[in-house]
Every structure is written in structure tokens, then in C-alpha cells.
């Protein structure tokens, strides 16, 4: 196969995996519904824990937003791969004569899209509850969210996939995922907080964005390489 055809094949497989996940989800809407409700519950729990005399402490909004994204992301990762495990469908995919890294990219895109939809609800919700001006710098804010979600999902997809065979996967996923994605949460929260400051501090936000983008590049590359090794028995 020529390199061009190989690249074409790679993206076709990735998009097929994404379409498969999308088709299942469009029918049942199970993961989207549960993830969204879970994210909203997270926001409420943090609101009750932090709000004093009707006022949230300064900087609470970005923290709550990113924690809600990470927690509901963990849940979504677990549920997506539970579905694959239950139907033994990932095994079937791995048996198919398709490039393995393409399967990873397909799953990753699915998680990122799902979390993107969740964020479309979460960001206005947090803005609404805490009066956070998320939309003053919409482009930088969106870039920060996308980069942060990709970084979190890149590590999360790999770990959730490799934990599929493990009995204690539910609890091991956050144990492994959170310490490794700490840079994403620090950068996400600090970057968002910089954008919420008045006047917005674009320089700081851009610096954090650059760190997250570098994180994404390193970890997507590493995951593409290790996925092949890890999913081979």
C-alpha cells in the first residue's frame, strides 16, 4: 500500500469507529444524558460546598467548571468502554485488519465530541449560576476548552481502553488519570481565571493554552504509539 492510501485508510477507519459510536449514542442517548446530569450534579455539589452567604468565593467558577468536566469525562470514558466490553465489540475491532492507532483516534474523537456537547451545556450553566463572564474572550476560552478536553481525553481514552480487561477498572481509571492530567487542570483553571479577570489577561491565558497544546501533542503521540503495544495480547 502506498503511503497516501495508508493515510486515507487510517482516517477512514477512525471516522468509521466514530460513526459507529455516534450511531449507537444517537439511538439510546444514554451516555450523553447521564454525563450531562452528572455534570450538573457536580456543579450543584460544589456550589453548596463553596457558596457562603449567597456569594461564591473568587475564582470558584473556573475551578467548578474544570472539575465538572474532568469528573463527568471520567464517567463518560468508563461508560463508553463498558459498552465495548459488554458487547465484546472492541475485541472484534482489534481483530479487524485495520491500523490499531486509527481505532484509538476514532474512540478519542468520540469522547472529545461527547465532552464538547457536555461543555456546551456546562459553560453557560456555570456562567449563569456564578455570574462568570466566560464569553468576554470567546475564542481564547473555546481554544482552552478544546485543548484541555483533548489532553484529558487523550490520556483517558488510552487508560480506559487498557483497563477494559481489568476487574477493578472503575476505580483504577481516576486513580491513574488524575495525577497524570494535573497539568491540564492547573492550566485550564488558571487560564480560565486569567480570562475572567477584569480586564482579561490574554497573555497569561495564551501561555497556559500553549502549555496545554504542548501536552496534547506529547500525549496524543505517546498514546498512538503505546495503544498498539498495549492492546496486543
Amino acid at each position: 500500500m502506498g503511503p497516501q492510501r495508508e493515510v486515507k485508510m487510517f482516517f477512514r477507519v477512525a471516522l468509521l469507529v466514530l460513526r459507529k459510536d455516534f450511531a449507537i449514542e444517537a439511538k439510546s442517548r444514554e451516555i450523553l444524558t447521564t454525563t450531562l446530569l452528572f455534570a450538573v450534579s457536580c456543579v450543584l455539589v460544589f456550589a453548596f460546598a463553596l457558596v457562603k452567604e449567597g456569594e461564591a468565593p473568587p475564582d470558584a467558577a473556573p475551578a467548578i467548571l474544570w472539575i465538572a468536566i474532568m469528573f463527568s469525562g471520567t464517567l463518560a470514558l468508563g461508560r463508553t468502554f463498558e459498552r465495548e466490553r459488554y458487547g465484546e465489540t472492541l475485541r472484534a475491532l482489534l481483530l479487524a485488519p485495520a491500523p490499531r492507532p486509527a481505532l484509538y483516534v476514532g474512540k478519542l474523537l468520540g469522547i472529545v465530541l461527547l465532552l464538547g456537547v457536555a461543555e456546551l451545556v456546562l459553560v453557560p450553566l456555570v456562567a449563569f449560576f456564578f455570574g462568570a463572564p466566560f464569553f468576554v474572550q470567546p475564542v481564547l476560552m473555546a481554544l482552552l476548552l478544546v485543548a484541555g478536553t483533548v489532553g484529558f481525553a487523550a490520556v483517558g481514552t488510552l487508560f480506559a481502553a487498557m483497563l477494559m480487561r481489568v476487574r477493578t477498572r472503575d476505580v483504577l481509571l481516576p486513580i491513574l488519570l488524575y495525577p497524570i492530567t494535573v497539568p491540564v487542570i492547573i492550566a485550564g483553571v488558571r487560564g480560565t481565571a486569567a480570562l475572567l479577570a477584569s480586564p482579561p489577561d490574554e497573555v497569561t491565558a495564551t501561555m497556559w493554552l500553549a502549555i496545554v497544546v504542548a501536552f496534547d501533542v506529547v500525549f496524543v503521540t505517546l498514546s498512538l504509539w503505546t495503544f498498539e503495544v498495549l492492546m496486543t495480547e
Partner: peptide
């Protein structure tokens, strides 16, 4: 400890990512 069979590879990935 709790990863069951195949935990070696999993752990190696954790070390690499860490």
C-alpha cells in the same frame, strides 16, 4: 497489585506516562 493478568504492560504504560 489489583490489575490482574496483563497488569505488567498497563503498569509500564503508567510509568511511561508518569
Amino acid at each position: 497489585k489489583y490489575g490482574g493478568p496483563g497488569a505488567e504492560k498497563l503498569a509500564a504504560a503508567v510509568a511511561l506516562f508518569g
